[in-house]
Nucleic acid binder design. Structure first.
Lengths: 204, 204
DNA sequence: CGTATTGGATACGTAGATGTATCGTAGGGG
DNA sequence: CCCCTACGATACATCTACGTATCCAATACG
């Protein structure tokens, strides 16, 4: 085929993977292009052949991570909604299944924090980030609304507000959890627990 | 007095102030020592005469910011508790008064984010940060417990858990608010509103 | 097969940030 | 009133990261 075999796409992917780790570990500003290349097993030559600058790399990576998160949530939501028996499921369990593994490992949390801090500083980027997150919330809202409509659960607030709160609590708890321990299992647990308790609060 | 008059303390304070702004704006790694000095109206000579490195400056600043936050919450809590008429106050209002202005301007949010990300990466620092935040939560818990004991309010969860949730929601909402608009008034509003709704959820 | 093209490596020049070593000066102590 | 100390400025050497320009090799294609 006309597609390059010493695959450009593959190189880009490896660079993006490496960048995700490095950015998470030392932060965007702290990361050097060379460090990213080294981890990916390339030299800076390869990098500048594929990206214009560290910033472009970050933007690309952030978009990729964001889309992956969004896609994951969408898939999970439609999975759950698709299940014929929406009735005999524990709502707490449902919400946990949706959010779990959004970014449940330490590095994921760090990378997300890095993205958020950039979103705070750069208005355009921030708008994009918020738009994406709103999409996630909409997805979850749809699911919750489904539960409400089917009489599975009765809420004390609107579905939209509930999902927004769940999202916020999940994010905050995950970050907090990542701060005092590496254990990924415990990290996941902490997030799930918080969500569960939050759901209980939201129910009538 | 034996205390230097071209006041060392004053210089340190000015440098810390400048650092807070610069760190918030461009991040810890992105900030240059020279930028901090320039904003403070000094040269790097003054800096290295007062601090060992940028990192030591950050640590000092973070400690200072943290202590200020903690002190503010403590003071507000004891103010509120001290008020003879704890009975005719709106609980929602109380909570809002406590948390409001913890870090309600854009720069404050950014600086806090910077501190949090460092807390994520540096275990020792993270432990210190969490300890401080737990102290804040304890203070708020005390206040809430007071309200519960006096029969002013009945909660669906324990006071400790309630205050932890309030803290999390407030932090998350503030960050989110800072992302899509500068307006400090609106920012404060957004935070307060979220707290208000959360309090309603927590009540029986 | 040989050749052109493309992906990646090497090498180099440059800019900016760091930290130190030295100097000048303002204020307090004798 | 003068000196001496401490604080901050200036000057300098170094180092790291960046980006570009050039070179080498592998692969697609005739």
């Amino acid at each position: 085929m006309t597609v390059p075999t010493r695959s450009r796409e593959n190189t880009r992917a490896r660079l993006l993977d490496a960048a995700e780790q490095v950015f998470a570990e030392v932060g965007l500003e702290g990361a050097t292009v060379e460090a990213v290349c080294e981890r990916a097993g390339f030299t800076r030559g390869a990098f500048y052949s594929n990206f214009e600058s560290k910033d472009e790399l970050f933007l690309t990576l952030a978009a990729s991570v964001g889309e992956a998160r969004l896609a994951a949530v969408r898939e999970r939501v439609s999975d759950v909604i698709g299940e014929q028996s929406l009735d005999d499921c524990d709502p707490v369990d449902l919400v946990q299944r949706i959010m779990d593994s959004g970014a449940d490992d330490r590095l994921g949390v760090m990378m997300l924090s890095e993205i958020r801090i950039r979103a705070l500083r750069d208005p355009a980027f921030g708008a994009a980030y918020l738009a994406q997150e709103n999409e996630m919330v909409r997805g979850i809202t749809a699911l919750i609304q489904e539960l409400v409509d089917s009489g599975q659960i009765t809420l004390r607030v609107e579905a939209a507000e509930a999902s927004q709160l769940l999202m916020t609590v999940w994010e905050g708890t995950t970050v907090r959890g990542a701060m005092d321990g590496d254990d990924p299992a415990r990290l996941r647990r902490v997030g799930s627990d918080a969500l569960g308790r939050m759901v209980e609060l939201l129910r009538v």
